[in-house]
Simulated scan of single mutants.
Amino acid sequence: MKYIFLIAFLIPIFGLAQIGGQSGYQSLNLTSNPRAAALGGTTISLVDGDVSQFFENPATLDSISAGNVFFHFNPYFADVFVYSGAYSFSIGNAGVFAAGIHYINYGAFDLVDETGAQLGSFRAQDYTFSIGKAHQIGVFSLGTNLKLTHSSIESYGSTAILVDIGGVFRINRNWSAAMVLKNMGFRISEYTQFSNPELPFDVKIGMSFKPEYMPLRFTLTSTNLTHENSSGSESSSGRSVSTFNQLFNRVNLGAEFLLSDNFQLLVGYNHKRKQELKLDDIGGGAGFSFGLMAKVKKVEIRFSRATFHTAGGSSFISLKTNLNDFKKIL
């Protein structure tokens, strides 16, 4: 088992691939739930019945029961709002599936001509529909998300069909490792005949570990493994990128304080975010995040806060419950 830790740290260094161009559909990289936001921005190895985790890794669906419903709200920046929702359901002998939507509303903008005369207004929005399924084979779990994503601005739009493929390996009840291939697919329409954005394909590797006699669970997730330089802002600004930064720009760290079944505290750190958004003379807390989970009756409430810059951060709020629990009460 000790070799898994070695592999997880070496892959961010050696697992480099060529980008091939500037990627589009960047809304697919926005965090879709408060739990992931609090644990550094993404986490793929948590398999404890949380339906919101299927956005991160479809292989986690094997731990989810039917009837779970989840809603997430994130007031982002500059009047941009992010919403996501998910529902798990059973189809006969096929087992449990999950369906979800991730929606970004960029708001209204002034529409002007080349002279600056105002012609009205227009809106911009992105949305992604997902449906996922997982299958467990012994200690392994394999899952797939099929996604339809559409981005529109004024009268222009672009649509793509994408697939996520994920896997989870349960080393024991307190230790799991995971890998996800995200956003593989093809475009079926473009904004214009001249646009050709690359899909934001990524490979993620992560693990979660809980010491047996401690109320703590640690998560480590390696991201951006398909990018040769995971921090383009540093190279473009003339800053030198140290070996330390090249490694940890690909690693998100998080910890959950499991105080009880009804209350938890979470903290996380995203080094890439800190390096890209800190000021030259002050970090301002960029890259750090925290959150909490409180369960009231049958409803799980989560709140997270991620600091992006010395000027502030972004908040994430969600509600989750299982509709079957209410049927039992009624």
Rank of each mutant, 00 (worst) to 15 (best):
P34T: 05
Y3L: 09
A108T: 15
M293E: 07
G268Q: 05
A17I: 00
P215G: 07
A37C: 09
E198W: 01
P12E: 01
M207W: 06
G132F: 00
N57E: 10
F316K: 02
L265W: 07
G132K: 03
D113M: 09
K274D: 08
K298D: 11
T223L: 04
S27T: 11
N252M: 06
S237L: 11
K210E: 07
I161L: 14
R173A: 14
P12T: 00
Y191I: 06
Q22T: 09
F97W: 10
F194P: 06
S84P: 08
D48S: 12
G143M: 03
Y83R: 12
S63E: 03
T115H: 14
L111F: 05
I153T: 07
I137M: 08
M207N: 10
A178F: 06
G49H: 09
G49R: 10
G67N: 06
T307P: 02
I171C: 10
T60W: 04
K297D: 12
I11Q: 01
L265C: 04
F263M: 07
D164Q: 07
Q136W: 01
F218K: 09
I7W: 05
A36E: 11
G20F: 00
G85W: 06
I101R: 00
Y191F: 15
S304G: 15
D113C: 09
R273M: 12
G20M: 00
L61T: 02
N224S: 07
G206S: 08
I11M: 12
N324S: 11
V112D: 09
K278T: 04
F263I: 03
R305V: 11
N57Q: 13
G185I: 03
Y269G: 06
L279K: 15
Y127T: 07
Q136T: 09
A286K: 01
H227E: 12
N252I: 02
G185C: 03
V180A: 10
F73S: 12
G254K: 01
A36L: 10
F308A: 08
K204T: 08
S121F: 15
